[in-house]
């Protein structure tokens, strides 16, 4: 029983990790909390639904198209809204508020077009799950775990090994210096949005395949992503992934003792504790408060 909870926790944690990594990537480079990231998650799921269930294309094709689309949507938001706002010298709060507005618009669009009822993406076979050391794991859940590991590895490789990745780290550490060194920070931010949004889309699709989907699913995903980012440490991608995993585990193992309805509240109490006592999270960079 405990083992089943642990497995559920790992699966949840891996899904959170995908969202959180995307959120952290965007925050580190664009320097604001991109709330609309949560609705990109939802869009990934609903686009797949649209293409697979309504247009009746094969599942894999639907997923591929949906993922590409989420990356493009993320980029258009950056180009259409956030970049112009940054250029006018607006503060991160203004961008956060704009992102909030976008979240509201897009979530309600989905709700208006698709309805608020629970939807499921047609996958064909109903999967009971593979037995694994006494617990059941469905193939989708295995997929979630594997995908998050692959993505974590891929993101780290990109950040450490590619020019664009190194540029991202430079912009994240010191935007002024990066600019002076000739790095085009606008392009870097655009790439961060592309990758980050794609991760959100992938997470949304996987979660929708694992359970189901509603237009408000993104809010919960966003909340968990934010908690994971704070406890893991905003500046560190592995930290954020670790934070997400711990969060998932804490939530699901916590069910053993505390009713599951309190999961959200507990996650946020943990978040507050970290914000107050260890705002840089487990592995992040220090965030100082005002001094002269």
């Amino acid at each position: 029983m405990l083992w089943q909870l642990a497995i559920n926790g790992i699966v949840a944690g891996c899904a959170f990790a995908l969202i959180a990594m995307g959120l952290a990537l965007i925050y580190n480079v664009a320097k604001f909390f991109h709330f609309a990231h949560g609705v990109i998650f939802t869009i990934g799921a609903y686009l797949t639904f649209l293409i697979a269930n309504w247009l009746e294309l094969p599942l894999l094709a639907s997923i591929s198209i949906a993922i590409t689309a989420t990356a493009l949507i993320g980029c258009s938001l950056e180009l259409g809204v956030f970049s112009p706002l940054r250029r006018k010298g607006n503060s991160p709060l203004v961008l956060l508020l704009a992102s909030l507005g976008i979240y509201i618009i897009l979530q309600n669009l989905i709700s208006a077009v698709f309805g608020d009822d629970i939807k499921i993406i047609r996958t064909g076979a109903v999967n009971e799950g593979i037995a694994f050391l006494g617990a059941r794991v469905t193939s989708i859940q295995v997929c979630i775990i594997l995908t998050s590991l692959v993505v974590l590895a891929a993101v780290l490789v990109i950040l450490k090994g590619t020019r664009m990745g190194r540029a991202m780290r430079a912009v994240s550490n010191d935007p002024e210096l990066a600019r002076v060194c000739g790095i085009d920070s606008d392009r870097v931010v655009l790439w961060a949005f592309a990758i980050g949004s794609m991760l959100a889309g992938i997470a949304g699709i996987l979660v929708a395949l694992d359970v189901d989907m509603t237009p408000t699913m993104g809010m919960n995903a966003l909340m968990m992503g934010v908690v994971a980012v704070i406890i893991g440490g905003n500046g560190s991608i592995p930290g954020v992934a670790l934070g997400a995993l711990l969060l998932g585990m804490a939530q699901h193992l916590g069910v053993w003792r505390i009713s599951s309805q309190w999961q959200d509240a507990i996650a946020f109490v943990i978040l507050l504790a970290f914000l107050l006592f260890k705002p840089e999270g487990f592995m992040g960079k220090k965030i100082r408060k005002a001094t002269a």
Partner: peptide
């Protein structure tokens, strides 16, 4: 203790709790 954009997250947490 915490900076304004992180503080928004803290208020978000209080709201959800």
């Amino acid at each position: 203790r915490i900076r304004d954009d992180y503080f928004v997250i803290a208020t978000f947490a209080f709201q959800v709790i």
